[in-house]
Amino acid sequence: MGDGEQGQQDGRPILKKFDQRLNRLIQALYPDERTRPGFARLAAEIREATGGSISATYLWELSTGKKRNVTLEQLDVLAEFFGVPPGYFLDDEVAERVSEQLSMAAALSDVKVRDLALRSAGLSSVSLDAILAIVDEVRKVQNLPEVQRPDSDDRTG
């Protein structure tokens, strides 16, 4: 599936991204660094939630990239605990799709973003289009990337 040439030139790109992807999940599940569990507590939570076992040391080694030889069983346990498909750890497309969802969830955890969304409920389609146009313009002013809208929302006409 396209990992032939790239795999040869980059060494093992899937494994090199594993630690980044694991850390992204930990940060998404525990956004506040002050209350984020240590690896011992995280390993215990994983064990309680899934029945699978990953030691705190091994979890730390995976998250720092010191170990990359995760078994399929451990991959499945991590995927189950974090609520992502196992392919998140291995497939760039799946990882990107999940990362977009994580970004959306993080945005909705922001009180002001959530407040804006709640206040817009019940507004007419024309009013929502006007608000979205304003938000798009403010994003441009702040040099933020354009937000990709779902295909079902055809706003070109």
Rank of each mutant, 00 (worst) to 15 (best):
E33P: 02
N143G: 06
G7M: 07
D19C: 09
G7C: 02
L29A: 07
L123Q: 14
P145C: 10
G2T: 08
L132T: 05
K140N: 09
S53R: 13
R68C: 01
A130E: 15
R24K: 13
D76E: 15
L78T: 11
A105C: 01
A133P: 01
L42Q: 05
A117E: 05
I14K: 07
S53A: 13
Q9L: 13
L72M: 07
Q20L: 10
V94I: 12
L22E: 13
S124W: 02
S152F: 14
L78N: 14
A130C: 05
L29I: 00
G83M: 02
F89S: 00
D19F: 02
A121L: 12
D129H: 08
A43C: 07
L75Y: 03
D32K: 01
D110G: 00
E137I: 03
M104N: 11
Q101R: 10
D3P: 00
V126M: 04
L42H: 10
L123W: 12
Q74L: 13
S124E: 11
V141F: 03
A40R: 08
L25C: 12
E5T: 15
T64A: 02
F81R: 01
G11A: 12
E137R: 07
I26S: 03
E48S: 11
D3H: 12
L42R: 04
E80I: 08
A79E: 14
E100G: 14
R114P: 00
F81K: 04
Y58S: 08
V84L: 04
Q27T: 00
R68A: 06
Q101D: 15
S152K: 09
E5F: 12
R97M: 09
E96R: 12
E45L: 14
Q20G: 00
T35K: 05
R149Y: 13
P37V: 04
N143K: 15
L102N: 00
A43R: 00
V126W: 05
Q101V: 06
E137T: 04
K16V: 00
A49N: 11
V70G: 13
I54F: 08
N23S: 08
G122L: 06
G38E: 10
S99T: 13
V147Q: 03
E61Q: 14
V111C: 04
L72I: 12
L144N: 04
A49K: 14
K112F: 10
L116R: 07
A79N: 05
A49V: 06
Q8G: 13
E45K: 13
R41A: 12
D19S: 15
S55V: 04
I54V: 13
D115T: 11
S127G: 07
D151I: 05
S103V: 06
R12K: 01
G52F: 07
A43Q: 01
S152C: 09
N143V: 09
L90N: 04
D91W: 02
K112T: 11
L78W: 14
V94Q: 09
R97W: 07
D151Q: 10
L108Y: 09
L102K: 04
N23F: 00
G7K: 03
G87T: 06
N23E: 11
I54R: 07
P31K: 06
R119S: 10
V70A: 15
A95K: 00
V135A: 15
A44F: 02
V138A: 10
A49S: 14
R47K: 11
R139N: 05
G122C: 04
F18S: 03
Q27W: 00
Q6N: 12
V77T: 15
D32S: 07
